[in-house]
Design a protein around this nucleic acid. Structure first.
Lengths: 171, 171
DNA sequence: TATTGTTATACTCTATAACTATA
DNA sequence: TATAGTTATAGAGTATAACAATA
């Protein structure tokens, strides 16, 4: 299928009515937030296939696993912060992972509202199966870039993250 | 895919049990798909505020508006392709936008299964209010980068999009 | 009173597929 | 038979807030 519209002659690339001035162009195809969303969606799909299809995990559950794989012992709040998830998302992911036996929890003696969470042996086993798979895909995708470009991208990402955070603070 | 990412030699600060080898490190904070997802989410939030809060539009509805703002007349299928939405998403967005009076449709004489869609005057008015707002935010975020970095990023994005598409074709 | 984490609710989004009306 | 678009349905994800236990 081609990207054409309904077969009429294309007059201009933006809205115009009765000689009024048109707004500054917005082209979806070059609009940064759109391009970023599409790329991110495609990359996420490619990665989530690996843990969703084979291990029946959601993205949230995978993030919890990944956080605990890295840090061994964490409270729910620590996981939330570390993985950019809301506390309810963590709470639900944790309860499903507990049921599935992929994680375990122990009382936190110092604060009994909170629990220390960790991967179970089964969780560790699954974590170890998934990690090489997702790293291989990451590697494949990044193989599109040279070493120099990769460094450039890291630096660009950091700048964009900061600027976006700045914007969100401003409201 | 090359499954050679085993990393048996590496010992690290992540999961270790009973002297077994740990997998090659996965750090969420430096994992490309994760960083991309977080950045994309933050940027999307910043943009969607503008059309969600003030104009009560969903992301899908906004994309349909944007597509029609650019191309004036399109069929539902053309919008779907142009805006990376599924046909059902377009169908639902279109029916809400029709009800809200932001778009209009005409019969397509050559194929009566399909309709030609366009912005209504009201739709044009809203589109023209939104466009400067989102462009201003895009500009603000991109102001984090120099002209050189912006070009670099365009080129990096294109490469990543292609590579990801290649990967998805492979399954 | 404030905090950690859970639960309730209602809502939106998504994915699959069946369906209709044309072609 | 195939295509454009709609509708049905169920499941997943999200947002807000109320809540219990503990501090």
């Amino acid at each position: 299928m081609s990207g054409k519209t309904d077969g009429r002659v294309r007059r201009s690339n933006s809205v115009q009515a009765a000689g009024e001035p048109s707004p500054k162009d917005l082209k979806l195809a070059t609009f940064f937030p759109y391009r970023l969303a599409v790329l991110s969606f495609d990359v996420s799909q490619t990665i989530s296939q690996l843990y969703a299809d084979r291990f029946n995990l959601t993205r949230q559950e995978w993030r919890v696993l990944a956080a605990l794989g890295e840090n061994k012992h964490m409270s729910a709040a620590a996981i939330a912060e570390y993985s950019t998830l809301e506390k309810m998302q963590v709470s639900r992911a944790v309860s499903k992972l507990l049921k599935a036996g992929l994680i375990a929890r122990e009382e936190n003696i110092r604060d009994r509202r909170s629990h220390s969470l960790r991967l179970s042996d089964k969780g560790v086993a699954i974590y170890r199966k998934i990690v090489p798979l997702v790293l291989a895909r990451e590697k494949f995708i990044l193989s599109a870039l040279s070493e120099r470009e990769r460094k450039e991208m890291d630096s660009i990402f950091a700048k964009l993250v900061n600027k976006t955070r700045e914007m969100r603070k401003m409201g």
